[in-house]
Design a protein around this nucleic acid. Sequence first.
DNA 1: TGTACATCAGTGAACGCGCGTTCACTGATGTAC
DNA 2: TGTACATCAGTGAACGCGCGTTCACTGATGTAC
Lengths: 236, 236
Amino acid sequence: MSASRTARERVRAELTREITDIARRQLATEGAAGLSLRAIAREMGMVSSAIHRYFPTKDALLTALIIDGYNAVGAAAERADAARDRADFGGRWLAICRAVRDWALAHPHEYALLYGSPVPGYAAPPDTVAAAIRDTVVLGRLATEAHEAGALDPPDDHPAAEAFAADADRLREFIPNVPDATIARAVTAWTALYGWISFELFGQFNNVILDRGPAFDQHVHNLAHYQGLPDPRPGE
Amino acid sequence: MSASRTARERVRAELTREITDIARRQLATEGAAGLSLRAIAREMGMVSSAIHRYFPTKDALLTALIIDGYNAVGAAAERADAARDRADFGGRWLAICRAVRDWALAHPHEYALLYGSPVPGYAAPPDTVAAAIRDTVVLGRLATEAHEAGALDPPDDHPAAEAFAADADRLREFIPNVPDATIARAVTAWTALYGWISFELFGQFNNVILDRGPAFDQHVHNLAHYQGLPDPRPGE
DNA sequence: TGTACATCAGTGAACGCGCGTTCACTGATGTAC
DNA sequence: TGTACATCAGTGAACGCGCGTTCACTGATGTAC
């Protein structure tokens, strides 16, 4: 019967979820290298080999965590973007950046898993890609919409180098309908956003930048101005 | 006798060096988590406990590697800077950025050790700090000198937020004699530089940005324009 | 509605591995007189 | 220059730990007729 069938499946889904939850908690205290299937089994009151019924291998569990993580940042970025007026391009940029940073601060080890040093010996399978680009898609769409609305007015209108044209074409998948220079600026802002967050989380700001929230806002405003985004509407 | 005394000491220094060399090579293949004192001893033909005569603990070895790493990037940045005409501020910026990236590409796992996810359970002792800031000092000095020479002409002259003032004061240790807005721009460029390199090394550019050298130059030029640095002199 | 069979979850033991660190020791190298 | 002593490097055995994965198994849950 399909009702009872889903009963078993529901338990399975629940336990699978419990495993990833515990794994995430382990990640938070031990880091990716300290992730241990045996420890998870122990915490669940299971024998260690039972985990393999749910994740055939440790890498499979890692992959699930990575996909979940990318989806979580992506969803946070999407929500932040959606909460702003479509035409408030500066406000959307600010909101997205803050959402990504807030998520990272709340889940530092998951962030490290996604954007930090690769886990040695682990190769991300191709099915992580769709999740991995969600946040980037949000940023790209913002740039395109701002450009199409004529709201992008960069103070520096240097054209992009010809050598960048091929990559610009590839990037146009995410940022359609804009000139190369706009793409170049977006990439610079994109790497700068994550560069900041990584520095903040990985300890490079220790004893140097202490008032992190305001400093981050300053950084994000800098990047907004650089891209030619308008100031956020009042009520930000 | 001091001559024979140095004989023993010379051997000791040599073996210490050999240990860190092997450790660096291990780092390159296994990553920081795979660093193993026993494996190092094995490769040296020593019994595993002998390593502890040179590094009392694994963390001590890690610390040595980290300090060496920071010094290596720092020295590369210093050399690149020194090779340019003092007044060629744009050229110096480009050269420093390229030197840091080149070093990172040549030593990806060491870069990850310095700028990637922190090694879980390891806390960097304070004696790493002096080495850690060498590259930053080079960048800060460039900004100050460019400003003092009147060569900084940023297209966007938005002032920095007041909330950034306290951190700007702290940062003035590295970038003296410049207004807050210049410091803010320098910090944005600084994080953007390393953000790019981390993205490139940690796999975020896979299938997206392929022609990395030109794209990086574009990024660095963007950041130069943003900061108001002049174009590099011909013969770059 | 009841029975025969198939699927699946979890067990427990085992394999084979590697790790950092301690400790008492031997023997060589360096030092002081 | 030679001897007595102190320092130091390296040995080998051991402690105690944790890990991922395989495998034959039991017993419960679900399915088909």
